[in-house]
Every structure is written in structure tokens, then in C-alpha cells.
Amino acid sequence: MPKVDDAHLAARRRQILDAAAACFAREGFHRTSVQDIVRESGVSAGLVYRYFTGKDDMIAAIVAERHEQRERRLREDPVVAYADLLRGLGDPAGRDGLRLALQVWAETVRSAPIRDLVRSGVDRPARHAADLLAGAALPPGVDVDAVIRIFIAVYQGLLLQTVLDDTLDHERLATAAEHLLRAALQPAGLTAP
């Protein structure tokens, strides 16, 4: 019997995760069944269960992948990457991803493992940003963690606003955020990598 190569296994896993993400974005986590994902992916139920134990496992895999992608971008050039994340919220091709993100946040109320995963996806980049902003000349009484949490909240809030209002000018908002970040870095002689 021929051996299945790693690329084929990765492609099948990707096919299942893409189908799960599409179903979750369209119908929500609780209204989506594994059978829905099987239909969407075009693979057998047995194959789905070969890769994932169930829907929660798929949700966790999707969340972990998205956090990894975002963190990789933020490590390259944090200020530009952050502004690009804000700009990307306005991309019509990403609307399903935004709806999925909102559902993931809602799922954190029900599922401790998803909450922990989402929390780690916020905390790791926040620690990296804290290192970057450590020498920033912030006004007295304003600490680095507060600044970071505000910028995280800006991203999360704009994501929510985008789902509710597709007329937002993301370019204008991202440019303003980028200028604010650069201003926080400049007084201390810091520059974004």
C-alpha cells in the first residue's frame, strides 16, 4: 500500500479546517454539525475524525492557526503589521473571518479551553509589544500595559464595528493608529523594527 506523504495529509487537514471555518462563519458553532463539515469538505466522516476529535478540536485548531499567522506578522514589523490588521478588517474577502472571530470570542464564555487559547493569543503579542514599548516616553501615570490593552481593544472594537457597519474607512483608522504608535515610540528614540 503506498504511503501518504506529509503534504497530502496537510492538504486534507487544511481542506477540513477551511470547510469547518466556512460552516462556523455561516451557521455558528452550535448550529454546525460535523455532518455539515463533512458535506462542505467533501470528505468522509471517518477522515474528519482521523484529524479531529470533534468540533471543539477544529475550533481550537482554527484559533491557533489564526493567532500564529497574526503573531508572525506582528514580529516582522509590529507597527506596520498592526495598521495592516486594522486595514484588513475592511477587506470584503475577510468578512467570514470577522464573523468567525466574534463567535470565537463568544465561545470563550462557554469553553475554558477556548478561553485559554484566545487569552494566550492576546497575551503573547502583548508581551512582545511590552518589550517594544519598554523605553517609550509615556505620560506620567500611564503604563505600557495600559497602552497595549487600549490598542488591543481598538482592534477588537473595530472588528466588531466592521461586522455591524461595512462603511467604516479602515484606511483612515489604520493610518491614525499607526501615527499614534509611532508617536509613542519616537520620544524615547525607539523605532519599530
Rank of each mutant, 00 (worst) to 15 (best):
L160K: 10
Q186M: 13
G135P: 08
I114F: 06
S33N: 03
R182C: 06
D18E: 15
I114R: 01
F24L: 06
D131W: 13
R39S: 12
A7Y: 06
Q161T: 13
E178H: 04
Q69M: 11
E27N: 15
D96P: 02
V109F: 10
L181E: 04
T32Q: 00
R87C: 03
G42P: 03
A177L: 00
M58Y: 03
E68F: 11
D5N: 15
H170P: 06
A20W: 00
R50Q: 14
G141A: 06
L89M: 02
P139D: 08
L190G: 08
L158G: 01
A11P: 04
R50I: 09
G97T: 07
D77Y: 10
A136Q: 07
F29Y: 10
V48T: 00
P193F: 06
R73L: 15
V118T: 06
Y51I: 05
E27C: 12
F29K: 08
P139A: 10
F24Q: 03
V43N: 02
S120F: 14
L173K: 03
A126N: 05
S120V: 13
L132I: 07
A19K: 05
R66C: 08
D91N: 06
A183C: 09
R127N: 15
E65K: 15
A21I: 14
I148P: 01
V48N: 03
W105A: 15
Q161P: 13
D116G: 14
R124Q: 15
A64L: 11
D169Y: 00
E76H: 13
D143L: 07
V34F: 01
G42S: 04
Q156S: 12
P140K: 08
A192T: 12
T175K: 14
G88A: 00
Y155C: 04
L181H: 00
V163A: 08
Y51K: 01
F24W: 02
E107I: 08
M58K: 03
R39P: 07
V144A: 00
A176K: 12
F29H: 04
V147N: 03
A174Y: 01
P125W: 00
P139G: 09
L159T: 02
A126T: 02
A146K: 06
E178S: 04
V79E: 01
H170G: 03
P140I: 07
G141N: 02
L9P: 05
L98S: 05
L138I: 09
G135I: 08
Q161K: 14
A20C: 04
L47M: 12
D84M: 08
E68Y: 09
T108I: 01
T162K: 01
L160H: 13
K55M: 03
K3L: 12
Y82W: 09
T191R: 15
K55G: 01
A19M: 04
D96N: 08
C23N: 06
V79M: 02
A184N: 08
L160P: 10
A61N: 01
R95S: 11
E40P: 07
R75H: 13
A130F: 09
D57S: 05
T175M: 11
V38L: 02
A7I: 13
I62D: 05
F29V: 10
G54D: 07
H128W: 12
A188T: 12
A83E: 02
L190P: 05
G189S: 00
G46S: 04
E76N: 12
E68R: 13
G141V: 05
G54F: 07
F52D: 00
